[in-house]
Design a binder for these strands. Structure first.
Lengths: 419, 419
DNA sequence: ACAGTTTCCCGTAAATGC
DNA sequence: TGCATTTACGGGAAACTG
C-alpha cells in the first residue's frame, strides 16, 4: 500500500554522500476513501539497526516528517523529501568492530512510517529502502556502487544489512550481464561477446566459462596483480571516461575497447597499413589509446600504440580531433598522420568526420592555434603476437537489473497493520 | 596593549568567504605581572554596526570566546581563533537599502573584547579590525579585493564603514603604486614604467599624468568601453594567470605584458625576423599571446599574434613548452617555429631553455605523444603601426601598502579602561 | 527578464584517525 | 608509518531573488 522511491546520485542510486542532498519519495499505493485529516510520513535512518552492526552512525539533518500530498500525475498520496545526512560523532562506540570491512561495504537503510486512522480503523504503515551505502567523498563512489551491484545481484533478503560479512560469489554469467548493463546505463551501448570474453579472461584467466565463480574480493577489493587498483575500479574508470569524454564515439561502436594486445595484433596483422583500432588502457585508470599497423617493404607488420589519453587531456582536446590530427614526425620529414582506416576498413574521416570539432575560425586579429598531438618516431616498438579470437556479437540485453535503472523504486511493504 | 592579527585568504586578507574558515589572532602587547586568572577574549562580528547601514547581517558559527595563551615565540598573551561566518537570514529588514552598492562594497568589522581585573584595577580591553568584505563565492574576490585596496589607500578613518557611499578618487600616482605592488605580492616582480604607462593610458587615456584622478567606478565598477569587464577585473585576471601559470616566466622578466599593439610594432619593426614579445590579451580575461615580426623579401615587416592562451590550455601545456614547440604550417611544407629571439635579441632557447618541461620519456610499451600548438598560415594579418614609447625602468618599490602584505596585522586600540 | 548574489556540489588536496 | 576515511575548499554551474 505504500511505495518509497528514491533518486540520489543520478547514475548511482542507493549511494548517499554526506553533505549532499538526496531525494526520497514515498507513495501510498492504495487509494483511500476521501480522508478528512492529514497523513504524516516520518523518515528514520537506520531505524532497526542491529546493535554494533555498523561502525558509523548517521542522522538526518533536514526535516524528517512531511504531510502526504496528492501526486500531480496519478493523484495518489505522495511525499517527497530533500534529505541531508551527517555522521554522528559518537565516542567511537562500535568503531573498529568488523574493521575488515570498508565503509563502502557497510549497509544502511531508510525507513518511512505513517499512521492512519479511518473508519474506526487504526493502521500503521511502514516501509524501508533497499540497503544504502553512505560515503563522504566522491572517490568512494566506485566502491560503493560495486557493493550496491553485488548486493542486488545476489541477495534475496532486502533487510540483510550484514551481507558483506560473508558475501557470496557470483557466476561469471551473472556478473558479466551486470557489467554490460553498466555500459548501457552510462551510454547507449552495452558490451559485445568479445569484450565480455576479454573481461572474463582478465578476471578469471584464460578458458573461463559462464559458470565460473567470481569472488567479491577479486571483483572489487583486491588489486589486480601488479596494478594499484581493483578490477572494478579499473572498469569504472573506463565507464566514467566514456560518459564524460567518449560518448559519441562509444555509441557509434567505434571503440573496440576491451581487447588483449595479442588479439589486437592478430586482428590488425593482415589489414592495410594505417588500419587502427581503439582500446582502453589496462595499465592506467581511465585511459584510451589507438594501435595501428604498418607494413614494411618486406611485408613485415609493425604495431604502434600511442601513450593513453586520459580525462585531463581529453577535456582540452576531444578524442575525435586527436584521431583527426595525430601526427608522426620522422626527422626532417613532413609530419604525417598514420591513422587511415578504423578497423576493419572504414576510412577514418568517414567514421569520425561528423564528430570533428569544426572550429568556426571567427574573424579576429589573432591567428588561431590548434593543438596537434605528435609522436616522434625513432625506433619501432614491436612485441610478440598472440592467439586469435571469436567474432562480434550484439551486446547483451538487460536482465534482472532493470530495477537499478534510472528511476529506481523500492518495492513496498506494509510491515504492520493493527486494529 | 592588545593587537588583533588576521590571515584569511593567503593573498587577500580582510576578505572573508562565508562557509570557509578564517583565522584571527589577538595579542596583548603589554606584559602583565603574573596574572593568577585566565584572560578571556570574545569575538563579535559587526559589534557597533550602525543601524541600517549594511544590507546583510552575519554571525560567527564557531566559538567566539577563548582563553589567551602564552605565545610560543615571544611569550606574550595570545589567542588564535578559527572562525566561520554565515549570513543571518533575517526577513529582508534593511535589504534594498543603499542598493546602489555591490555586496563587495559593504564593509564589516570584527571586534575583540577582554576584561581584566588585577591589583584592584578593572580594565576593559577592546580592539577591532580594519574593514572587512564578506563574499559568498570566489568570483566575488576581485571586487572585494578592489574595495580593500581602495579603502586602505584612501581612508584615514579605519572605522568608516560607510566609505563606499561616496568613495574619494585616487591619484594615478597612488593607484599605480598599489597596482605594481599587487604584482610584487603575487610574484617576485612588480611593474616597470612602460607597463605602468600603458595601464594609465588604458584607464585615463593618452597623455595622462601622475596627478590625474581615477574614480572608483572607473577602476572597478564600470566596464571598460566595449568590454564586458572592468579595468580591475581584467588586471586581476592577469595577476591570477601569472600566479598560477606564468610565475617563472614573469619573474625572469620575460613578459613585456602591458604594451599597446601600436608600441609593439614600433619595437619589433626593426628587429630580426623571428623576434617576438609576450603580452597579455586586452580583449579576453586572463590571456597571454606572443607577437613576432617577419620581414619579407622586400624588407616589409609582417606582424603576427597567436590567439591568446588561457588557464585551461596552460594547465595542460605550460607556456614555455608552447613557445618551444609552436609551429606554423604552410601547406605542404615542413612546419617551422617562427619564434627565434625574445625581444630585443635573446635566443629563444637561451631565455626559456631552463623552463622547458624535460619529459623523462619513461621506457614503456607506448609511444609518447606531445601536444604541439600549431597555426595554419594562409593570409597574413597586418594592422597599422603606432607611436613609440619610453625606455624600461626598474619596478616601483612598495610604499604605504606594506601593511597589506602577508602577515597583515591590525593596529590595536584600548577603547575603554575604567577604575 | 535579468543581473547580482547565493547555493550546490564535483573533484582534488590536505588533514585526520586508526 | 601507512592506509582508510573525512574534511576543506576552489571553481564552475545552477538556483535563487528582488
Amino acid at each position: 500500500e505504500q511505495q518509497p522511491c528514491m533518486a540520489t546520485h543520478p547514475q548511482k542510486p542507493l549511494v548517499i554522500k554526506t553533505g549532499v542532498q538526496f531525494v526520497t519519495k514515498v507513495r501510498l499505493l492504495v487509494k483511500l476513501p476521501a480522508v478528512d485529516y492529514q497523513l504524516k510520513v516520518k523518515t528514520t535512518f537506520d531505524k532497526d539497526l542491529p546493535p554494533g552492526r555498523v561502525s558509523r552512525q548517521f542522522f538526518i539533518v533536514t526535516n524528517t516528517t512531511k504531510v502526504m500530498d496528492a501526486d500531480e500525475v496519478n493523484g495518489c498520496l505522495c511525499a517527497e523529501f530533500r534529505h541531508g545526512l551527517k555522521e554522528k560523532k559518537c565516542g567511537n562506540s562500535a568503531k573498529s568492530k568488523e574493521s575488515l570491512l570498508f565503509v563502502t561495504e557497510e549497509l544502511h537503510s531508510l525507513s518511512f512510517e505513517a499512521h492512519l486512522t479511518t473508519q474506526g480503523l487504526n493502521i500503521d504503515l511502514e516501509t524501508s529502502s533497499l540497503p544504502l551505502v553512505v560515503i563522504s567523498n566522491g572517490i568512494q563512489m566506485p566502491g560503493a556502487w560495486a557493493s550496491i551491484m553485488w548486493f542486488n545481484l545476489l541477495s534475496h533478503e532486502p533487510q540483510n544489512l550484514g551481507f558483506f560479512g560473508s558475501p557470496p560469489p557470483a557466476t561469471w554469467a551473472q556478473l558479466s550481464e551486470v557489467l554490460s548493463w553498466q555500459f548501457c546505463t552510462n551510454s547507449a551501448q552495452g558490451l559485445n561477446k568479445e569484450q565480455i570474453d576479454m573481461l572474463g579472461e582478465k578476471l578469471l584467466g584464460q578458458h573461463c566459462s559462464n559458470s565460473d565463480q567470481v569472488h567479491w574480493s577479486k571483483f572489487s577489493k583486491e588489486n589486480i596483480p601488479g596494478k594499484p587498483f581493483s578490477f572494478w575500479v579499473w572498469l569504472d574508470s573506463i565507464l566514467e571516461l566514456i560518459r564524460k569524454h567518449l560518448l559519441p564515439v562509444w555509441n557509434q561502436n567505434y571503440i573496440m575497447g576491451f581487447v588483449s594486445k595479442g588479439k589486437e595484433r592478430t586482428l590488425l596483422r593482415d589489414k592495410e597499413s594505417g588500419t587502427f583500432l581503439l582500446r582502453f588502457s589496462e595499465s592506467h585508470l581511465g585511459g584510451i589509446t589507438f594501435t595501428w599497423v604498418q607494413h614494411g617493404d618486406d611485408g613485415e607488420a609493425t604495431f604502434n600504440s600511442v601513450e593513453p589519453y586520459t580525462k585531463s587531456l581529453l577535456s582540452t582536446l576531444p578524442f575525435p580531433d586527436i584521431i583527426r590530427n595525430y601526427k608522426v614526425i620522422s626527422d626532417g620529414l613532413v609530419p604525417t598522420n598514420p591513422l587511415k582506416f578504423l578497423y576493419p576498413d572504414i576510412p577514418k574521416d568517414k567514421a569520425f568526420g561528423q564528430l570533428y570539432n569544426n572550429l568556426p575560425s571567427k574573424a579576429n586579429p589573432y591567428i588561431p592555434s590548434t593543438l596537434i598531438p605528435c609522436s616522434e618516431m625513432r625506433s619501432s616498438n614491436v612485441s610478440p603476437p598472440s592467439a586469435p579470437c571469436d567474432s562480434p556479437q550484439p551486446p547483451m540485453t538487460p536482465g534482472e537489473f532493470d530495477m537499478l535503472n534510472q528511476t529506481l523504486c523500492f518495492d513496498m511493504d506494509v510491515m504492520n497493520s493493527a486494529y
